[in-house]
Amino acid sequence: MTLQGKTALVTGGTSGIGRAVAMKLAHRGAHVIVTGRDKRRGEEVIAEIDAQGGNARFIAADLANFDDVRRLAGAAADVDVLVNNAGVFPGRPTEQTTEKDFDLVFDVNVKAPFYLTATIAPRMAARGGGAIISISTMAATIGMSGLAAYGASKAAIEALTKSWTAEYGPQGVRVNVVAPGPTHTPANAAMGEMFDALTATVPARRGADPDEIAAAVCFLASDEASFIYGAVLHADGGRVAV
C-alpha cells in the first residue's frame, strides 16, 4: 500500500488521530504537510517523521481563522491527498452551547474543510485524480447527549462528501469519510471515566488506538481503494451497528 511520490496535507496533524495519520502516510512514502496551531508540536512531529526516514514539513494554521484557511489552501493547493482531520468538540448540553461555541465548531469542522476542498479538489480533478478523506465520528450517526453541535457538524461533512463525490468523482477524485468511535487520544484522555463508559457500549469492548484509525485513512488514500467513492468507513468497533 505504497504512497510513494504522493503529497498529502493533514489538518490537525500535531496530535491524536492527525498525528498518527501523518506518521503512517509518511511511512508509506508520501511527502506530508502537517498543519496545526502549535508550532512546537508541529516541529516535534516533523522531527519524528524525519528520524524514521520520512519526508514532511509543517505549516502553522488556525482553521478557526479564515485568513489562515485561505493561506493554507494556497500553500498546499497541489497535494494528491487531503485529510480533513482538524476538529473541535466542546461537549455540553444544547442549552449551554453559546453562539461562540457553535460558530467555532462549524468554522473548524465544516467551513475550513469546505474551502480547503474548494481549492484543492478542482486542481486534483484537472490532474486526473486524487483522494480526499474527512474524519467524522459515530456521533454523526447516533444521537449522543451533549454532542449536538459536534454531531451535526460531522453529519454535514458526510453530506458534503456525497456532493463532492458527485462533483469531482467523474474526474477521478475519490472523496470518502472515516468515522471513528472512541479513540485513545490526549483530548479524550480528559474524559476519564466517561471515556470508559463510552467504550463499554462498543461491541469491540475497547477504544481504538489512533494507528487503527490512521490505517483506515491510508487505505482510502491508496490505490487499493481505487473503486471506493463517497463511502463512510465506520472505524468504531461496531458501535453504529448495534
Rank of each mutant, 00 (worst) to 15 (best):
Q4Y: 11
G5D: 11
K6H: 12
L9G: 10
V10G: 04
G12L: 12
G13N: 07
S15Q: 15
S15D: 12
A22T: 09
A22G: 11
M23L: 15
L25G: 03
L25Y: 05
G29V: 09
I33D: 00
I33K: 03
D38C: 06
K39P: 04
G42L: 08
E44A: 15
E48T: 12
A51T: 05
N55H: 14
I59A: 08
D62T: 09
F66S: 08
F66W: 09
F66I: 08
R70T: 15
R70L: 14
L72F: 11
A73T: 04
G74E: 04
G74Y: 01
D78N: 08
D78T: 10
D80P: 01
V81Q: 00
V83Y: 06
A86E: 02
F89Y: 15
F89V: 09
E95S: 11
Q96W: 09
E99V: 13
K100L: 13
D101W: 04
V105Y: 01
V105S: 04
F106E: 05
V108Q: 02
N109F: 13
A112S: 14
T119P: 03
I120H: 02
I120V: 14
A121W: 01
P122N: 03
R123G: 06
A126L: 14
I132D: 02
I133Y: 02
S134K: 03
S134Q: 06
S136V: 09
T141H: 13
A148R: 01
A149C: 05
S153F: 12
A155I: 08
A159V: 07
L160S: 05
L160F: 15
S163N: 10
T165F: 07
E167Q: 14
G169K: 05
P170V: 13
P170K: 01
P170G: 05
Q171L: 12
R174Q: 03
V175A: 06
V175R: 06
A179N: 04
P182G: 10
P182I: 09
N188R: 15
N188H: 07
M191P: 01
G192N: 08
F195N: 03
F195G: 07
A197T: 06
L198H: 07
T199V: 15
T201I: 08
T201N: 05
P203F: 10
R205P: 02
G207Q: 04
A208M: 04
P210W: 04
P210M: 06
I213P: 00
A214W: 03
F219M: 12
L220N: 03
L220I: 12
L220D: 06
S222G: 14
A225P: 02
F227Y: 15
F227I: 13
I228A: 14
I228Q: 13
Y229W: 13
V232P: 07
H234I: 05
G238E: 02
G238W: 00
V242M: 09
